[in-house]
Design a protein around this nucleic acid. Structure first.
Lengths: 196, 196
DNA sequence: CATCTGACAGATTTCAATATCTGTCAGCTG
DNA sequence: CAGCTGACAGATATTGAAATCTGTCAGATG
């Protein structure tokens, strides 16, 4: 908002864009708005991001990466793989549910952005399953999990099977009574399926 | 289309409505169109369905029920429960994928209808999990499946965990390469989790 | 000379006037 | 008299003209 005299950086533009998206929503947030918020002309924004779509994609990636980093600690935690798997999955569910519940409008905004860039989402899913793969590998090495298929395939299966508890398209069902139980039932079934 | 002289029945109205939806899509299908297709005034349609929403809900239920009936044969098939579970899940996936692939526009139309009536969807999911519950019960009785939780809970868990392969919101990913493998991986994991 | 500005063309969105639709009901028809 | 019609009021959708936005670029600025 305040026309700061600092140099215009991609980082500052991204922050301003997030703010504009928060204020105006995904449909009405324009790059002219972003420029106005920064006190520059919109031409300057186009110096850092070739198109409006590229700007929105960058914002989306940042948001997705933040979620990813929140979970990375669990992957390398000093606990047995089964616990890490349970913790990671529960943390993913909890994080998504918190974000959707705390500020539904902002969450809806990011759901629109996510829908716009399938590519960024694909990368994010790859990052997430990579984290899961490391946990599965640890489990296979320690003998906690059976080694029937390769860890990457198993990780993808785990991610898909728990989709109902982290995929934004189910967000409206996360506050219904009984979700906790549904989540526990799915996770128990999967964990049992992993054991040798 | 042809103004038949047969008596106007709810059934005939539903058929005409499906046809109008197929032709015009969910956004532009009006009850005036339906009446025109039947060669009657729109007032007559309102004699059988109180509102446009009620008419659309009835069409939605009919469509959902047809899917349900397609699968009911597998539930009572003369095979071991594990095979029935695999067949049922695979048949559900195949049916959904075929419908989405054969006529994407019509499928999109029904996705809109389904989004309009959460209630009808809830009933449909209850019907589907009831079918799964019967398979799980058979498995528990014959000792093929462990009896760690009640069959209803397990059935819900199975339905949720396979959502990626029957929930319409994933329809666009059903034609990507590797889905077959993803499906097999999830199903294998779940089946292993069910065994005693 | 690197960065920024502002005017511009074409694309997209907004807005208000206009047309169509929904749902009702008094009366027509067979 | 049971079922249907068509006119009607209010709600919703369509349309086209005006406003705004996107993306570019020649020239200003420091």
């Amino acid at each position: 908002m305040a026309p700061t005299s600092e140099t215009l950086t991609a980082e500052r533009i991204l922050e301003a864009t997030e703010e504009v998206l928060r204020r105006h929503g995904p449909a009405k947030a324009t790059v002219v708005d972003v420029a106005r918020a920064l006190g520059v002309s919109h031409g300057s924004v186009y110096r850092h991001f070739r198109t409006k779509a590229a700007l929105r994609e960058a914002v989306t990636k940042r948001w997705l990466d933040r979620t990813c980093e929140e979970l990375s600690g669990i992957v390398i935690a000093d606990r047995d793989p089964e616990t890490r798997l349970r913790d990671w999955t529960a943390a993913l569910f909890a994080a998504k549910r918190r974000k959707a519940g705390e500020d539904p409008e902002l969450f809806a905004t990011y759901m629109v952005l996510v829908g716009e860039n399938g590519e960024a989402v694909g990368e994010h899913i790859a990052d997430m399953t990579a984290q899961l793969t490391r946990i599965v590998e640890a489990g296979v090495e320690s003998g906690t999990f059976a080694a029937t298929t390769d860890p990457g395939t198993t990780a993808r299966a785990l991610f898909h099977a728990t989709g109902r508890f982290h995929d934004p398209c189910y967000a409206r069902e996360w506050e219904e009574p009984g979700v906790e139980g549904d989540f526990a039932a799915v996770l128990d079934l999967l964990v049992k399926g992993l054991r040798p």
